[in-house]
Amino acid sequence: MFNMNTKEYIESGILELYVAGTLSEKESQEVYALTLKHPELLDEVLKIEAAIIKLTAAVSPRDSKLFYTSIKDKITNNNDTKVIPLDNKPNKQWFTYVSWAASIVFAAGMLWFANQNNQLKEQIRIADVDKELLEVQIEKGNTSLTEAKKLISVLRDKDIIPVPLAGQAVYPEAYAKVYWDKKSNSIVLDAQGLPEPPKGKVYQVWSLKLNPLTPTSLGVIADFNSDENKLFTIENANASEAFGITLEPEGGSESPTLEQLYTLGAVASAP
């Protein structure tokens, strides 16, 4: 279709086959999608259908409209049980009736069991799904707890240098904290005070030397939105004099976009 215009598509005869029901399910879905897009195709389908309906109706031996009431009775009263005339040759056919009745009871019983079985299966399936959900929650809880414990240990470690990062012009309310562990060459960034980055943007963390100003990227925080505690451990082997966080296009930038500098803080010089 994609290289064909709608006229050629109509001429190909595919719509006639669509109405006949001879196309594969996939082909039918394609035709359906195209008829939604091109009203002239739908119009053609309706005309083909109308012609086929008239042609096939002409073969009908009786006027079908007369039989609707009996169908209506059947679809609206499908709970009615059949009345079996017992007084009709009772002795001869007694056994037949009983066996019919027995098989109906048996069949009903089987249906009931099948139904119960299906219901139980469904309940097991639901319970399985619930269990999986709970496991995921426990797993999540454990991860949060580990992170929180880590933060406490970081806070209590005497060798850790805390560096508060203050909000800058672009978003003055922003704040963050860096806990720099020089022994393990890593920082823990607490980014709770940063707003969620807009779609297509990520925060990028920079280590800065001040004289002359030399930024070194410590990487981007790709999972900012999904991280509940907003605590990120990042490697840092630099002799940092300050830390900054900028908002950058997804994937990060070579050098910081200073107009999008969210927070900045200098490392207190050693006493």
Partner: peptide, 27 residues
């Protein structure tokens, strides 16, 4: 039903060729 029953009746009758059976199947 009013739109399609006559058409279905025709298709069915063409296959079974018996008016009573066709009517029953159509219903």
């Amino acid at each position: 039903y009013n739109m399609y029953s006559e058409s279905m009746h025709g298709v069915i009758f063409n296959i079974v060729r018996d008016p009573d059976i066709a009517q029953e199947i159509m219903q």
